[in-house]
Design a protein around this nucleic acid. Structure first.
Lengths: 203, 203
DNA sequence: TACGAAACGGACCGGCTGGTCAGCTTCACC
DNA sequence: GGTGAAGCTGACCAGCCGGTCCGTTTCGTA
């Protein structure tokens, strides 16, 4: 439970920020398979320096993923103030899919639970909770089907990105098509309930 | 252009079949990251034997992926005989998502074009064509929105699997929920067209 | 400016990977 | 059964990875 005493030395502070920045970009481009060596090289720093700031690769990755998740949670929380629940839900989903499209490592981590630290899992859980609030407002207004949950919405973000993934080079905006399709599915009136409700799944 | 003379020796024929079988199971469980060493060990065979039958790991993977794709294409082609276009399309999508759920390597290869040999790309293209035929029949009947293509349907198979992926352990059938949601989206009546039509994208 | 502590760098380690090869074994055919 | 070709094996190789360690450099302070 002991907190790490934050370094006061200017070079250490500078390098930490630099590393987070470079690592975020590198992971975004190459996914979790990006090597520490490559990150160190891009940052113009020795490998040992990376491991001094982040004891393991997993720690570095988790720090970056937490930043991303927190940003998305912040966006979602802000959208709760929008007085149009449907517009807010659509804006949330747009921001979510965009986050996936921009960052390969984010896709990797969300898709493979074995890459998730406890902190990351907690953040994902928080994201699902905000998603549920956004979804509930639209649901109560009758704008989305009654059996769709916030977890459904959160899960679909990754699904939409993966749907468009093979088209990414040909049309970097193709994900908008599948977001639209998915959104229309959420609002469809069918009369039959969805199978396998995720219930209180702690995602 | 020279074809490989197929071996007539019984042990070679037996080992080839055995390797394809074991490798298919191993790749399905562990994804493309499964090592040749592990496959050889599971098959009770030396590593060199694997490389004798398949010069590179990519060749082995391609052989298995082609089998899978051909099977799916066969299923889809058979469904063209169904006189209910909607039922046929739903059955195709069910079979497709099931293939993804069962096989991690299939997900990996479809999602990462850099893992696809030319033969695999051709097979994917053929799959999209059959998907288009199935989709067109349902479209003409007015059962799916007019702007949905076979490529859309094929792409969504992977997306649906990825949507349910984080739930796989908790509920192995969760993908059925998102298949249903996606299918309802295909049939939704909205009055507004989808953005970014993939047109004649050779997928 | 002098000094001690903290941070840095990169050679190094062990482990794993795809792929090779020389020598041994097994098969098919006579 | 003899024989030669084909198949099999596993030690071996080079390359990459995450992670360690210690000699060297840099920083903050007095």
């Amino acid at each position: 439970m002991s907190a790490k005493p934050p370094s006061t030395r200017s070079d250490a502070v500078r390098n930490r920020k630099l590393l987070l920045d470079v690592a975020a970009r590198t992971f975004a481009e190459r996914g979790v398979e990006a090597s520490i060596g490559e990150i160190a090289q891009r940052a113009g720093v020795g490998k040992g320096t990376v491991f001094r700031h982040f004891p393991t690769k997993e720690d570095l990755l988790a720090a970056i993923m937490l930043d991303l998740l927190d940003e998305l949670i912040g966006t979602a929380t802000g959208l709760l103030a929008d007085d149009d629940p449907v517009r807010a839900l659509r804006a949330f989903m747009t921001a979510g899919v965009e986050a996936f499209v921009r960052d390969r490592a984010f896709c990797d981590v969300i898709g493979r639970p074995s890459l998730q630290s406890q902190e990351v899992r907690d953040a994902i859980h928080r994201l699902c909770e905000v998603a549920e609030q956004l979804t509930a407002r639209a649901r109560e207004k009758g704008a989305v089907r009654p059996d769709v949950t916030g977890t459904d919405v959160a899960l679909m973000l990754s699904g939409i990105q993966h749907t468009a993934a093979p088209l990414l080079d040909a049309d970097p905006q193709a994900w908008r098509r599948y977001l639209e399709l998915a959104f229309d599915g959420l609002t469809a009136v069918t009369g039959h309930p969805l199978p396998h409700p995720p219930d209180r799944l702690t995602l």
